[in-house]
Each structure stands twice: as C-alpha cells, then as structure tokens.
Design a protein around this nucleic acid. Structure first.
Lengths: 296, 296
DNA sequence: AACAATTACGCACCACGTAAGGATA
DNA sequence: TATCCTTACGTGGTGCGTAATTGTT
C-alpha cells in the first residue's frame, strides 16, 4: 500500500468527490477510482458509499480516514524533520579539482550543494591532477574532481559525466560556415595546445595520434597555459584548438567562437570523483560525493 | 512510497542487518537493499552508515525510524479496527438461489461469509429461477444467485463463475474406460433429464439441439425432479445424464460416478448474482454481493 | 576463502492516461 | 443531455528473484 494511495483516499474523503480529488492530486479521475478500489480490495469492503449525487464514507472509510490523516501528517513531519536536519548539518569538505572541472563544472555543483547544506564549508583547491591525487592519498583532501579516472588502490573513483573535447575556431575562420570537417583537413592548420601535463592536452594528443595526425602535421603549434588564454587566442584568429565543451558554453552563446565537429574524431573522457576508499573523514564529505554524482 | 518500504526499513534498522531483515520480511537481500536505496533516494541522503561489520542509522535514519514505527503502528491499528468493525457488523440478508446453486455452491459461500461477518443473518430461499426473479423485483429478496443471467431492467446481474455441464455415467457403463466420446455416440443411450422448467434442463436441451441431437435420438428418456435423484439413477445404471460439475464433486471423489468429456459438446453457463439496481436495502446485502463475487 | 551488500538483468505486475461505457438527474 | 463514476486497454515504470560482482575480514 502506498502513502500516495492514502493521500488520494483522503483527498476523496475530504471533498466527497472523485473528480474534485483527481484535480486536487493531479491525477485522472479513473486513476483516483482505481487507487480507492485498490484500498477497498485490500480491506475487503467498501470505503465509500457511491450514491450518485454525493459520495460518503462508510463506517470503515471513516475509521481509515482518521488513521490515514494521522499517517500522512506523521509522514510529512518526518519529511520536514529530515530536511531540517539536512539543512542544519555542519561540516567542512576539502575538495580538490583539476583545472577544467574546477573552473567550469565545480562552481555550479558547489552552489547547489551550499543551497542544500547552507552550513557546510566547502574548501576548494584547484591543482593539476597529479597534485590532487597526492593530496587525496595523504588524506588532506576529502575528495577530488578530476578530468580522467585514476587507478590507485587507495582511491575509489566514480564517473560523474562524460566530457566531450570539441574543436573550436574563430568566427573569421574559413571553416566558419561548414557543418563539419574531417580529421585529414586539420593538416597544416595552426594548432593551439595546453601545456604538457594538462589532462586535456594528454587526451587530445592521444586522439590525434589515433587519427594518424602528428604535431608536425600542423602549422604553427602554440602552447598556452590556460584554457581562457586559448579561447582568446582562437577568437583572435591565431589558430584552432581543442577544449572541453564545458569551457566554451558562454562563448558559443555569445557567438565569439564556433564549434566544428570533426566527423571522424570523437574525443570523450569522463569527469570523475575520487575519494579515499576508507571511511570518509566527515559525513559532509560523503554527502558531497553522493550529491556530486547526482548532478549528472 | 510504500508502507511496505517502511516495514523493510524498520526491519533493517531493528536488526542492523540487511540480510537478517530480508529473512524477517521474506524478501531477497537485494530487494531489501533496493527498498532502502529507494528511501534514501527519496530523501536525498543516506539513512544507514554501511560500515562492513555492522550498519547503523544515520541521524536522518534515526528520525525516519521513529516516525516510521509510528506510521506502521497506526497502519496496523487501522487494519485491526476496520476488521473489528467488519466483524461486528450486524444485518440481515435475504438470499434467493436456484436449485443447483443453492444446493452445491451457496452453502460454501454462506459459510465463508458467516466467518467474515459472524453477526450477519443470512436467510436463504431455494426456489426456481422465475420465482427468485419475482421475489427480487418485489424487493422481498436482497439478491439472488442464479444459474443463468437474467435480462430484467430492474435487476443488475453479474457473472460469478462459469459452470460446466458434464456428462455422467455409471461405473459399469461400457464407456467407463473411455477418455472421451463424441456427440454422435450419444444416440440410443438412455438419457435422464431434469423436469421441464429447470435451468439445467434448458441449457442441456439447447446444447443437444445445437449438436443435432433430438430427444427421439435417445433410448429411454427419463425425467427426475432433482439432481440427487438423477445421480442415484445414473449410479444404478439407469442411463446417462448431464449435470453441473458442482453437483458431482463428492461422487467423483468417491468414484461412484464417472465424467466422460463429450469432445464436440461443451456446455457452459454462468452462475450469476442478481440484485435490484437501486440501492441495497442493507449494507450487509451489499457486502454479500461483493463477497460472493470474490469467491470466484 | 567466506560473508555481506550491491549491481545487472529479465520478467511480471501495476499505475497511469485516454477512450469508451453505464447510470442518474 | 450533462455529469460523475467505472471499465477497458496500451504503455511505461517499478518490484522482484537469480546471478554475477564488489569489498572486507
């Protein structure tokens, strides 16, 4: 038996009408009928007297109505208390994040998290992946959000969402009108890359190698230390670049950059949350992990 | 959310073990896990701390546990009270039944009904179908159980169960070893029938006519005024007869009669409950009707 | 290894909405 | 005819058990 069924039953009992109750609980009239019937079947007796013009509770219905209202109020009370308790939870979470995640994804997650846990203190460190992992194994961080899964016996690692690395070009670029390009066309184009050691660079290099493209195949190859710098460079027409789709949401809205699909080059990776396999240092850290996982 | 889920949750909370709880509530361990997970998802937080060796309630789990136990006890209380009320209902039901139903089906139904409503007074009149219908239209009876559906504007009529009319023969009959016979073989056999006006006789005659068999095709055609007399006659080898399957349950168990399927002759009819379309005279009458319908 | 819990998967059932079907004024 | 409730039916979602997997002692 469902709490919902009790709600529907009470709605009918309170209004003495199936159709009004249906509107009140946002169900179709037949659905309400069936819910009540199912209750009646459960008790093996009618709960409502269906006279045509107005229905009324049978004695058994009256009994159930009293108790059902009690149950519903307790249920709502439990709901309130649990949410109150959640809202009043205090605690500190030490979160580490690698660059792209920390810059473009985490702020939103932390914002929503603070809304759910107003008293939580989230301390964020944006470092490169290796550094984050070190801090995690030393138990200085509670959890880390990374651009690739880690393989470390001491750390658990769950996928959060898949990130796509897209090719961006300036609006003046000859490809600006194209629907897509193929990998071979990239030869000779001036390519802008992140510095070595960047997670994004590693996955881009690997994908290009898989597509039989080498660094020497490109025109000028330029290295910049931040994604923001790369975007600016591409906007200025200095070349093309591969960046996370998360990094260019604003620019796409503004129209200052264009994304061109490379038909035979799909670069994807998983954003992951990593945390010590052992028990969490604080419940808040645990909440943060499960919360992050639900943020898709 | 289901009451059942709360029960499962409480079972886990009380035993601090998923596997023990699973046994206690007769569910598989994974099912219990899923129930709890669904609750945890509903509240967006963990309700149990899963340390390996013993699980414990989180503060939120504690809150829910308190309330859930309340809800369950109210739920059980409602159940008890409703059943008590049902058990204490008084009232009189005037039931009419035609012969076969009244003799072989109704006693069991009334027995079960009395168990559910110990204070109910059921008055039974066994009459022929036409008489029952008359008493119903005159509002002398609350409801009638008949061997065929009635078509009467003042009466509602619901099918209860389908009755099969079977061919019975004595144990000494040459067909006694046969698995089945075909309709044509019936020619020349001495047939024993109920008196004209019997519901059973009408449906048998019609079925035989549909199978191109006429009364003249049989050997001696004998008429007896009761099913009991017919069975005795068949047991004595005086002939074959068609009777309701309900009428020969005991004889089949005893082995004093045999049922031979007639392969190309399936005689079926519906046992029906008929009652005035208007409101029931008493709630007990209403209960009897819905009760009878559930007795399959 | 052994035990406890979770995830995966296939099946069956159930709840819902739409549409059609009474019953009553 | 109009209103209200019930029945019929197709679909999507959910609960279940079995089996495989993970994680811990």
């Amino acid at each position: 038996m469902t709490i919902n069924q009790l709600e529907v039953f009470c709605a009918v009992a309170a209004r003495r009408s199936f159709s009004l109750a249906a509107k009140a609980v946002n169900l179709s009239q037949p659905a309400v009928s069936l819910q009540v019937q199912s209750l009646e079947e459960h008790y093996g007796t009618r709960l409502f007297d269906r006279s045509v013009n107005s229905i009324s509770l049978t004695p058994m219905g009256e009994i159930l109505y009293q108790h059902a209202r009690n149950i519903l109020s307790i249920w709502e009370q439990a709901d309130r208390e649990i949410r109150d308790h959640i809202g009043s939870m205090e605690g500190e979470v030490m979160v580490g994040a690698s660059t792209t995640v920390g810059q473009y994804v985490l702020p939103r997650v932390i914002g929503n998290f603070q809304r759910k846990f107003p008293l939580a203190v989230v301390r964020l460190q944006v470092k490169n992946t290796a550094e984050i992992i070190r801090l995690l194994t030393e138990n200085i961080l509670d959890l880390g959000l990374l651009e690739a899964s880690v393989d470390n016996k001491k750390l658990a690692c769950d996928a959060l969402t898949t990130d796509r690395i897209v090719l961006i070009i300036g609006t003046e670029h000859p490809w600006a009108g194209r629907e897509y390009v193929v990998a071979a066309e990239l030869r000779g184009e001036p390519l802008i890359l992140r510095e070595p050691g960047s997670g994004t660079r590693r996955v881009v290099e690997r994908a290009l190698r898989d597509a039989n493209l080498r660094m020497e195949d490109f025109g000028r190859v330029m290295e910049l230390g931040s994604t923001e710098a790369i975007k600016t460079a591409v906007e200025s027409g200095l070349g093309i670049a591969f960046v996370s789709q998360w990094a260019v949401r604003k620019e796409l809205q503004l129209g200052s950059l264009k994304v061109i699909p490379v038909r035979d080059l799909l670069i994807e990776r998983s954003f992951c949350v990593a945390y010590p396999r052992q028990k969490f240092k604080s419940r808040m850290a645990e909440e943060f992990v499960s919360f992050a996982k639900k943020q898709v």
